[in-house]
């Protein structure tokens, strides 16, 4: 099986209608290029999981790819609302959107439980919180040793997880560093995993022994897409495009304006366009 494929092939072979899909990256390393490819391939009825849906899920929702979203903070960070998410949830445009809402602690624990092969996560959480009353997937158990009442949520086991990382070596092992979020957990919890990277390097001989490396045999596809996290960022390669996050608000606040933007920048573009959207700093050693 070939690990190195095009982005088009990676999505076609691993993401199917109706799948449970996690595109992770906690503010940092959000896999935008992969999300756009899912939109171009017109996947439908996806259940999307992400702690912070960010603009990428706003775009997937607005383009009609999403049946349900599982999340823990659904805003445009530092800016305000996700306009397409709200339009779908409040006004069913372009169609009805179901949600399942958690706290960050619950989702982080649920990913970890998924990676650990457990059916559920157990943690001290949701004490007195309203979500516990409206989300039937939030339950409580009693510690068998102390009797303490602890929260439990089902583990997250995506059909496919997609992340963006700094680099891969020629064998397809992947390095991820900086704010690493829940990406390692998302990959190890999933049946299939796709990684887009900034670059391919010869080897990882110069890495710190404790660096976060995902061995090639944990992955289905590795795709170099320079700039592929824009307007999110890749530490050592380019910074977060905060100006774009602000500019997104007026673009997404209007249905026609949103569709025109998506037509020009996603449907009529490809992964090669990402490199020109970022300003590369010198890669850190």
């Amino acid at each position: 099986m070939t690990l190195f494929v095009s982005l088009k092939e990676a999505i076609a072979a691993n993401v199917f209608d109706g799948d449970l899909v996690a595109l992770e990256g906690f503010t940092h390393l959000i896999p935008y290029a992969a999300g756009h490819e899912i939109i171009r391939q017109q996947r439908k009825d996806l259940t999307l999981i992400r702690m912070t849906p960010d603009l990428i899920y706003d775009q997937l929702i607005g383009m009609g790819c999403v049946k349900k979203m599982i999340f823990s903070w659904g805003g445009n960070p530092g800016v305000g609302s996700l306009r397409r998410f709200r339009d779908a949830y409040e006004k069913s445009w372009p169609h009805k959107l179901e949600i399942e809402e958690h706290s960050h602690a619950a989702m982080a624990n649920a990913y970890e439980a998924g990676a650990a092969g457990l059916p559920c996560a157990v943690f001290r959480g949701y004490l007195g919180a309203g979500l516990a009353e409206v989300n039937p997937n939030i339950r409580f158990i009693e510690c068998p040793f102390t009797g303490e009442r602890l929260a439990s949520v089902p583990s997250i086991r995506p059909d496919v997880s997609i992340i963006h990382a700094q680099k891969a070596n020629r064998k397809g092992d992947v390095l991820i560093e900086g704010i690493v979020g829940v990406q390692k957990e998302a990959v190890l919890a999933a049946k299939r995993a796709i990684v887009t990277v900034e670059e391919i390097v010869d080897n990882f001989d110069d890495l710190h022994p404790n660096a976060c490396v995902l061995p090639n045999w944990t992955l289905k596809a590795v795709v170099p897409v320079p700039g592929g996290a824009h307007p999110s960022y890749a530490k050592g390669y380019y910074e977060r495009d905060n100006a774009f996050y602000k500019a997104w608000d007026p673009i997404a606040s209007d249905r026609e304006g949103f569709q025109a933007w998506m037509q020009e920048n996603v449907l009529n573009a490809g992964p090669d366009a990402f490199a020109s959207r970022v300003v590369f700093t010198q890669a850190e050693k």
Partner: peptide, 9 residues
């Protein structure tokens, strides 16, 4: 619909 709780709970 507001963004939600995030880490707050």
């Amino acid at each position: 619909r507001l963004p939600g709780g995030g880490g707050a709970p």
